[in-house]
Design a protein around this nucleic acid. Structure first.
Length: 769
DNA sequence: AAATTTACTTAGGAACATCTTA
DNA sequence: TAAGATGTTCCTAAGTAAATTT
C-alpha cells in the first residue's frame, strides 16, 4: 500500500535553493513588521545587558500579535468557534471507528514500572580506561522485552531472561513464542561477542540498554551527575596594531564594542553582511555595547572600516593551519582533556557521553533564509544564566570561581543537564546527551515502533481520510486533505509561528493559498497540484503532483474567496490534526507519517533494487539509491558542494584513463593468446592467464568508478544524511546488510554505529519494518 | 480552549580530520 | 609533502508536540 504513491523524483531539481524566488509574499506582512519595529527594539534592549529578565519579552510579542489577530479575526476566530462546536459530534463518530479498528489494546505509556537502580551507584560505560568502570549487567539487568519476531518496543513490565542474569519474567502480554529462539541467540552473543579477541571484551562491556526495562513512570533517570557546561573563552582584545577606522580615522574601541565589532569583521566575506536587515540589526545591537562617546561618534555603519580586523583574523586562521605538529597535538590533547572532564555524565549506573557540553559562544545571529533577526547580537552566556539539572544526591557541578548558577534543580522528568534562555528568540537551549546514550536511543527506538504500528493501521486511516473528503463539514474535509498531503508527500505538520519573529516558512497546516497552484490539466496529466513554498530551514519545496479528483475539487473549494496570503486550511491547525490522529491510533501524530513513509520506502526500494549477485559496490549503489528515494521524498536538499563540478571532472578523467588501460590490457591479452596459439607452450599459457586476470581486474575497477560517478551525480543536491539519521529505521539497513553480506561499516560510520548500536545488535536478516 | 512555555527531534552547513593525489 | 578531495563532527537553528498557564 505504501508504494502506491508513485512518488515523483522530480522535485528537487526543479527547485533552486534559496529565497530569492520567494520575495513576493512580503507585501502584507511588511506593514506589520514595520509597525512592530519599535517594540522589537525595546525587546532587544532588555536582553542586552540585563540577562536576568528575559521573561517579559514575551508579553510584548503578545501585544503585537493581538493586533495582528484583530485584523484577520473575523475568519479565524469564528473558524475556531465553529470547530469546537463540531468537535463533539465528530469525536463520537471517530471513537466508534477507533474502537472498531484498533487492533491492540492501548498500550500504557507509563505503567508505574520502575527501574531498579541504586541512586548513587556508578557504573560507567566502557571505552577508555578512565576511572569509571562498568559492570554493565550485574547490578540488575532486568531486560527489556522485545520479541524477536516483531522487535516490538514494549514498555512493559516484562523481564526477559535473555541471559544468565535475568531470572524471572513477569508477563503481561507477551506472545513471545519466539522467545526461546531469541534467548538462544542472545546467549551466544553475550558470551562471545561477534568477532575476535580484542573485540570480545569490549563488546561484553558495552552496555546493552535495550535489553533492560525502561522507566514507565515518566521519570527519565534516577541518578544524574555531571560537571556542568564549558563556557566560551573570554574575549581577548585585539593587539594594538590592529585598528578599526571610522570615516577613515583610526579609533580605539572599548572592549565590549570591540568584541562585537570583531564578530562583524569575521563575517565580512559573507554575503549577508551586505544585507540590509543584517546590517541594521547588527548596528542597532552594536551601538548598545558602545560607550556614550563611541555612540556619539559612530552613527553610520557604512563609515566603519573593519578590514584590518578582518585581515587579522584571516592571518590568525592561516597561522593556525601552519602550526607545527606538536602544537596541533597539544591543542588536540587539551580538547581531549576537556572532553574527558566535561563531555560525560553519569546517568543511573552508566557513564554516558554528552552531546553538546560547550555553551554557544557569543556572535551575530544568522537565521536561515530571510530571517528578520539576522545580524542581532547573540549574547554571551554566563553561569548566572544557567540552570543546572542533576540529582540531589550527586556531586553538583560547581560554577566557575566567583560565579553562581542561576539555579540548581533536580527534575528527573526531563533529560537535560543544563539549560539557558537565548536572547534572540527567547527560547530555551539545552545540554543533553549524545545520540548513543540510552535516553536518546530508547526514544529513537520508540519512534520507529510507533511508525511500525502505523504501518499496521495505515490502510484503515487512508480509507478514513478518503471518506472524509466527502464530508459535509469543511473542517473535516480540510483535515482529510491535509492528512492526505502529509501521508502522500511526507509534508511536515506546519505549526503556526509568530510572524516577524522568524523566517516566513510553512508546513502542511500552515500552507497558504499562494503556495499552491491548481491545473485541471497539465501536459498529459489531470488534476495537478503545484506546490511551491519554503519549508523548514527555508528550503524550497517544489513539486507538481497529480492528485485524485476529489482532492482537487476540495482544493478548489478551499481556495474560494481567498487572498493569496490566506491560509489554505483555514479551519485546521496542527493541534486539531494531531488530536484527530491521536484518536485514530495511540501515539499517532503528523510526523509519524514521515517516519513511516520514509522507512517503508527504504525497505521497499531495497527490495526492489538489490540484486543478490551484484558486486558489493553495486549493492551499495542500490542502497544509496534507496536512501536517495527517501531523501527526495522528504525533500532533504543540500547546496551542491562547491567543488562538485571539479570533482566530477576528476572522476571522469579517472574513468577515461581506466578505459584506456582496459583497452590496452585487452590488446595485450589478445596478443598473448595469439602467442599461445603459436607456441602452445606452458609459459605462454600462463601469460594468457595473467593477462586475462589483468583485464578482469581493470574491468572491475572501471565498474566501480562508474558506479561511483553515477552515485555522485545523482546525489548532487540531495543530502542522504538526514534521512539516514532520523527517518530510516536502522534495523532495515542492518537486516539488509546481513542478508546481502555487506559489512555494516559500508553503510554506517563509527558515530552512526554508535547511535544505532541497539539496531545492529538486535536486527537479524529477516527483520521487517 | 487559547496562549505560552518547555522539551526534545530534525536540519543543513561550517569546521575540522583524514585520506588521496600530484 | 603540500594541496586538494572527501568524510566526519560540531554547531546551532528551526521544527514538532506535549505540558502548563492564563
Amino acid at each position: 500500500m505504501s508504494g502506491d504513491h508513485g512518488r515523483g523524483d522530480s522535485q528537487v531539481n526543479s527547485g533552486s535553493k534559496g529565497s530569492d524566488t520567494h520575495k513576493h509574499k512580503d507585501k502584507h506582512k511588511d506593514k506589520e513588521h514595520r509597525h512592530k519595529d519599535h517594540k522589537k527594539d525595546k525587546e532587544r534592549e532588555k536582553f542586552k545587558h540585563s540577562n536576568s529578565e528575559h521573561k517579559e519579552h514575551s508579553e510584548k510579542k503578545h501585544r503585537d500579535k493581538d493586533k495582528e489577530r484583530l485584523k484577520h479575526s473575523d475568519s479565524s476566530s469564528d473558524k475556531h468557534r465553529q470547530k469546537h462546536k463540531d468537535r463533539d459530534k465528530d469525536k463520537r463518530r471517530e471513537e466508534k471507528i477507533q474502537s472498531s479498528h484498533l487492533e491492540k489494546p492501548k498500550r500504557e505509556k507509563e505503567n508505574g514500572y520502575v527501574r531498579d537502580r541504586s541512586p548513587a551507584g556508578i557504573k560507567s560505560e566502557p571505552e577508555e580506561d578512565n576511572g569509571f568502570y562498568p559492570s554493565p549487567q550485574h547490578n540488575k539487568s532486568s531486560r527489556q522485552e522485545y520479541d524477536d519476531e516483531e522487535y516490538e518496543y514494549k514498555p512493559k513490565k516484562v523481564k526477559l531472561e535473555h541471559d544468565k542474569k535475568a531470572k524471572k519474567r513477569k508477563h503481561e502480554y507477551d506472545e513471545d513464542e519466539e522467545d526461546e529462539g531469541i534467548k538462544h541467540k542472545k546467549k551466544i552473543k553475550d558470551k562471545k561477542g561477534t568477532d575476535g579477541k580484542k573485540v570480545k571484551k569490549e563488546e561484553e562491556e558495552k552496555w546493552k540498554w535495550w535489553e533492560e526495562e525502561r522507566y514507565t513512570d515518566g521519570s527519565k533517570w534516577r541518578f544524574l551527575e555531571h560537571k556542568g557546561p564549558v563556557f566560551a573563552p573570554p574575549y581577548e582584545p585585539l593587539p594594538g596594531k590592529v585598528k578599526f577606522y571610522y570615516g577613515g580615522k583610526p579609533m580605539k574601541l572599548s572592549a565590549p564594542a570591540e568584541e562585537v565589532a570583531t564578530f562583524f569583521a569575521k563575517m565580512l566575506d559573507h554575503e549577508y553582511t551586505t544585507k540590509d536587515i543584517f546590517r541594521k540589526n547588527f548596528f542597532k545591537d552594536w551601538r548598545k555595547e558602545m560607550t556614550s562617546e563611541e555612540k556619539s561618534v559612530i552613527t553610520d555603519l557604512n563609515k566603519c572600516d573593519f578590514s584590518e580586523m578582518s585581515e587579522y583574523f584571516k592571518a590568525q586562521s592561516e597561522a593556525r593551519k601552519q602550526m607545527s605538529k606538536e602544537e596541533k597535538q597539544k591543542i588536540k590533547e587539551e580538547n581531549e582533556r576537556l572532553l574527558q572532564e566535561y563531555g560525560f555524565c553519569i546517568m543511573d549506573n552508566h557513564k554516558e557521553r554528552i552531546g553538546n557540553f560547550r555553551i554557544e559562544p557569543p556572535g551575530l545571529f544568522r537565521g536561515r533564509g530571510d530571517h528578520p533577526k539576522m545580524g542581532m547580537l547573540k549574547r554571551r552566556i554566563r553561569p548566572e544564566d544557567i540552570i543546572i539539572n542533576c540529582s540531589k544526591d550527586s556531586k553538583h557541578p560547581k560554577p566557575p570561581p566567583g560565579t553562581k548558577w542561576k539555579e540548581v534543580r533536580h527534575d528527573n522528568k526531563v533529560t537535560w543537564l543544563a539549560s539557558w534562555t537565548e536572547n534572540i528568540q527567547g527560547s530555551i537551549k539545552y545540554i543533553m546527551l549524545n545520540p548513543s546514550s540510552r535516553i536518546k536511543g530508547e526514544k529513537d527506538w520508540q519512534k520507529y515502533e510507533t511508525a511500525r504500528r502505523l504501518k499496521k493501521c495505515v490502510d484503515r486511516i487512508r480509507a478514513q481520510y478518503r471518506e472524509d473528503w466527502k464530508s459535509k463539514e469543511m473542517r473535516i474535509r480540510q483535515r482529510a486533505v491535509a492528512l492526505y498531503f502529509i501521508d502522500k508527500l511526507a509534508l511536515r505538520a506546519g505549526n503556526e509561528k509568530e510572524e516577524g519573529e522568524t523566517a516566513d516558512t510553512v508546513g502542511c497546516c500552515s500552507l497558504r493559498v499562494e503556495h499552491i497552484k491548481l491545473y485541471p490539466k497539465l501536459d498529459d496529466q489531470e488534476y495537478v497540484v503545484e506546490f511551491d513554498f519554503l519549508g523548514k530551514d527555508s528550503i524550497r519545496y517544489y513539486n507538481k503532483i497529480p492528485v485524485e479528483k476529489r482532492v482537487f475539487k476540495n482544493l478548489q473549494l478551499f481556495l474560494e474567496n481567498k487572498q493569496p496570503e490566506d491560509d489554505l486550511f483555514d479551519r485546521l491547525n496542527t493541534s486539531i490534526l494531531n488530536k484527530h490522529l491521536q484518536e485514530l491510533m495511540d501515539g499517532l501524530t503528523a510526523k509519524v507519517f514521515r517516519t513511516y513513509n520514509a522507512s517503508i520506502t527504504l525497505q521497499q526500494q531495497l527490495k526492489e533494487l538489490t540484486c543478490s549477485d551484484d558486486s558489493i559496490p553495486a549493492k551499495i549503489l542500490s542502497y544509496n539509491r534507496a536512501n536517495r528515494a527517501v531523501a527526495i521524498l522528504c525533500n532533504h536538499q543540500r547546496a551542491p558542494p562547491k567543488t562538485f563540478e571539479k570533482s566530477m571532472q576528476n572522476l571522469q578523467n579517472k574513468i577515461d584513463e581506466k578505459q584506456n588501460q582496459l583497452s590496452a590490457a585487452r590488446k595485450q591479452l589478445k596478443a598473448a593468446k595469439a602467442d599461445h596459439k603459436a607456441s602452445h607452450d606452458d609459459k605462454s599459457k600462463k601469460a594468457v592467464e595473467m593477462k586475462r586476470k589483468a583485464v578482469q581486474r581493470i574491468e572491475e575497477q572501471l565498474m566501480k568508478l562508474q558506479v561511483q560517478a553515477t552515485d555522485r551525480e545523482e546525489n548532487k543536491q540531495i543530502a542522504l544524511g538526514t534521512s539516514k539519521l532520523n527517518y530510516l529505521d536502522p534495523r532495515i539497513s542492518v537486516a539488509w546488510c546481513k542478508k546481502f553480506g555487506i559489512p555494516i561499516e559500508k553503510i554506517y560510520n563509527k558515530t552512526q554505529r554508535e547511535k544505532f548500536a541497539w539496531a545492529i545488535d538486535m536486527a537479524d536478516k529477516d527483520y521487517e519494518f
